[in-house]
């Protein structure tokens, strides 16, 4: 539960900083956080299937929006020479990079662990999970490649909100400009989706810890806890630091552990069947 709260807090702080820096500098932080947490609470308040389908539709719109905006970067703003050196790496670097990218969906594994017992035949749907992780890694890699090809690896490494900054560079003629407004939409979808996911995990855990309590009340309390913690942290730098540490030392090993566990379970089942 604490991991999920912390993850939600980091996500909320990083996104609200993006919003305040680029678009709504005068909107109070509490209003931004309250809106995000309220929307997250709303989309998880119904059936789980509805939440999953909402995420599905937002993912499609988000990817479409991202690609449609960055299509204007071709060919003027894409520098292939920025990308080529990335591939000049050692095997260990490649493996580390691949592992990091596959770990991008590691939070989803937290949710998967929660819902696994409600899936009728989880072995049958193992391929979906693997496909999802690979698709997620590919999409994130592609997005990062686009950003790097526009800004160079050095610059991309040193700035926050790469996508928004890269989109800011695009200007074609008089009318195509300010595309960061649209890219921001994809960032917001990710922020709401991830916050909802963490909130769902927190809520479900809370329901298990305090059985018999009113579920909707628990959801509101979980939302308020996350909101309070995000307001208390109130710092992009601290949130970023927390996120990096959590990703490197908790989530990535955790996702690897879960995948290895699933692999071991699968192999054991195969042996038993033989």
């Amino acid at each position: 539960m604490l991991i999920n709260i912390t993850l939600a807090v980091t996500m909320l702080n990083m996104f609200s900083e993006l919003l305040k820096t680029f678009f709504n500098p005068h909107t109070p932080l509490i209003v931004i956080l309250l809106s995000l947490v309220s929307v997250a609470c709303l989309i998880i308040s119904g059936e789980f299937l509805v939440f999953a389908r909402t995420v599905q539709i937002l993912t499609v719109i988000g990817i479409f929006n991202f690609l449609l905006s960055f299509i204007f970067a071709f060919p003027n703003y894409i520098h292939i020479e920025y990308v080529i050196p990335i591939f000049d790496t050692s095997w260990s670097g490649f493996i580390r990079g691949t592992l990091f990218m596959t770990g991008a969906a590691s939070e989803s594994l937290l949710l998967l662990m929660l819902i696994i017992k409600f899936i009728p035949q989880p072995q049958k749907h193992l391929l979906w999970v693997i496909n999802g992780i690979i698709a997620c890694a590919l999409i994130f890699s592609l997005a990062i490649l686009v950003i790097i090809s526009m800004m160079s690896p050095e610059l991309a490494k040193r700035i926050a909100f790469g996508g928004v900054n890269a989109a800011q560079l695009i200007q074609i003629g008089e009318f195509i400009r300010g595309l960061e407004v649209f890219i921001f939409g994809t960032y917001q979808f990710i922020a709401i989706g991830k916050t909802a996911l963490y909130l769902y995990c927190t809520w479900t855990t809370a329901k298990k810890i305090f059985p018999g309590c009113n579920a909707k009340l628990m959801l509101v309390l979980a939302g308020l806890t996350i909101l309070g913690a995000a307001l208390w942290l109130n710092s992009y730098t601290k949130a970023y630091f927390l996120a990096v540490n959590l990703a490197s030392y908790v989530l990535l090993p955790f996702s690897l552990f879960v995948l290895l566990l699933a692999l071991w379970a699968g192999l054991k089942k195969q042996k038993t069947e033989v």
């Binding site: 919003l19 678009f23 709504n24 909107t27 931004i32 809106s35 995000l36 929307v39 709303l42 989309i43 119904g46 059936e47 509805v50 389908r53 909402t54 599905q56 539709i57 937002l58 719109i61 407004v181 921001f184 939409g185 917001q188 979808f189 709401i192």
Partner: peptide, 20 residues
């Protein structure tokens, strides 16, 4: 009230409602 931030929140709410 919120500009693009509010509009996208609205889109999320509409998407959630439609899929439900």
């Amino acid at each position: 009230i919120f500009g693009m931030f509010g509009l996208i929140n609205g889109i999320v709410i509409i998407c959630w409602h439609v899929v439900s």
